[in-house]
Computed example of a mutant assay.
Amino acid sequence: MRLRLIQIDAFADRVFRGNPAAVMPLPSWLPDPVLQDIAEENNLSETAFYVADLPSDAGPPPKAEPPPDAEPPSADTPAYHLRWFTPAVEVDLCGHATLATAGQLFEDVHPEAGRILFWTRSGWLPVSRTDRDGELELDFPAGDLRPVPESDEVSAAAVTALGIDPEFRFQDTDLVYVLRDAAAVRAVVPDFTALARLPVRGAVVTAPSDTDGVDFVSRWFGAGAGAFEDPVTGSAHSQIAPYWAKRLGRPRLTARQLSARGGTLGCEVDGDRVRLRGTWRRYLDGTATIPEPIR
């Protein structure tokens, strides 16, 4: 069996920046172990697989309109079933691979569409074009950070593994630590072996920015999910953007993830949703050969 494989750098203003994701359109779902093998072979933080057929439990698509400055949606908005796999596990939410998938679909399949819908393990996720060339906007569920006491054993172990002295400790999908400044975020050198033993997807360190035009910075470490340090993590920003919006007193912010590749995201908090904006660059178009019979 031969399958298309497209590699796209998401939240990137040029190739070799942002977060690379593999995008693989499928005629129908392959067995989960095969999807996991493909993701492991691709060896990127996420591989996105999608099919055109929606599951019976998808429910009605959201009625919300895209933002005012986005292109208007077509009368029949395209919809797909989307799943994401790291080299180790399937995940419930992924920002950069959703951005990459939408970019591939807008460019290759739906050049006239202004909006695409994805049914996922996190429900319906709309993606819209904006008025900026090449920029897309993801509509994600907002996180709900809960304070974590210093006595919490898992959190304390993560603090030790990260070698940090956080000002505040939170948890949602990931552990989240607010540090005193951007320099402290840059200085983190994690013990990935220790992090991988913890029963959490990942850990975020974040702080106010020290760069003009950027409001807050972060890094994300996901050894438990097989990702180690992720270059740019959309799902982490859906967790931390509401915190920074409240702390800084405005809903629309610019974030920078301080990985080696780096990436910039626009964040807008709107009730229980977070809209994440970013650009993408296509890097590779190829074909994957999958042995048959498919097990």
Results as ranks from 00 to 15, higher is better:
56 S>L: 13
135 E>G: 04
78 P>A: 06
94 C>N: 03
58 A>Q: 03
71 E>Y: 12
95 G>C: 05
62 P>G: 03
43 N>C: 09
117 L>A: 02
102 A>V: 00
75 A>P: 12
134 G>M: 02
53 D>N: 13
67 P>A: 15
131 D>G: 15
85 F>P: 00
76 D>N: 13
81 H>K: 00
67 P>F: 08
84 W>M: 04
47 T>G: 05
107 E>P: 10
57 D>C: 07
95 G>A: 07
55 P>V: 04
119 W>M: 08
81 H>A: 14
125 L>V: 13
79 A>N: 10
126 P>D: 02
45 S>V: 06
60 P>C: 06
58 A>L: 04
129 R>I: 00
131 D>V: 01
47 T>C: 04
122 S>G: 02
92 D>H: 12
50 Y>P: 01
78 P>G: 03
65 E>H: 11
37 D>C: 11
63 K>V: 15
62 P>T: 01
39 A>G: 07
109 V>S: 03
133 D>H: 10
56 S>C: 07
61 P>N: 03
130 T>G: 12
71 E>P: 12
120 T>Y: 06
134 G>D: 09
83 R>Y: 11
98 T>M: 06
130 T>Y: 00
53 D>I: 11
38 I>P: 07
90 E>G: 04
39 A>P: 06
47 T>A: 09
87 P>W: 00
52 A>Q: 13
51 V>A: 09
78 P>M: 06
133 D>F: 05
118 F>K: 04
88 A>P: 07
101 T>S: 09
135 E>D: 11
122 S>H: 00
62 P>H: 01
71 E>A: 14
58 A>H: 12
90 E>L: 02
66 P>Q: 08
95 G>W: 05
87 P>K: 10
106 F>L: 01
73 P>H: 04
116 I>P: 08
94 C>V: 05
78 P>C: 01
39 A>S: 08
42 N>G: 00
39 A>T: 12
101 T>F: 08
102 A>G: 05
55 P>L: 02
38 I>C: 05
45 S>N: 11
88 A>L: 15
122 S>T: 00
61 P>M: 09
117 L>N: 01
61 P>V: 04
68 P>E: 14
89 V>Y: 10
33 P>I: 04
115 R>Q: 15
106 F>H: 00
86 T>F: 03
127 V>C: 09
111 P>N: 12
114 G>E: 06
133 D>S: 15
78 P>I: 00
119 W>H: 10
43 N>H: 12
71 E>W: 05
76 D>Y: 09
35 L>K: 07
55 P>K: 06
91 V>S: 10
74 S>E: 15
60 P>L: 13
117 L>W: 00
49 F>H: 01
102 A>C: 07
103 G>P: 01
65 E>V: 11
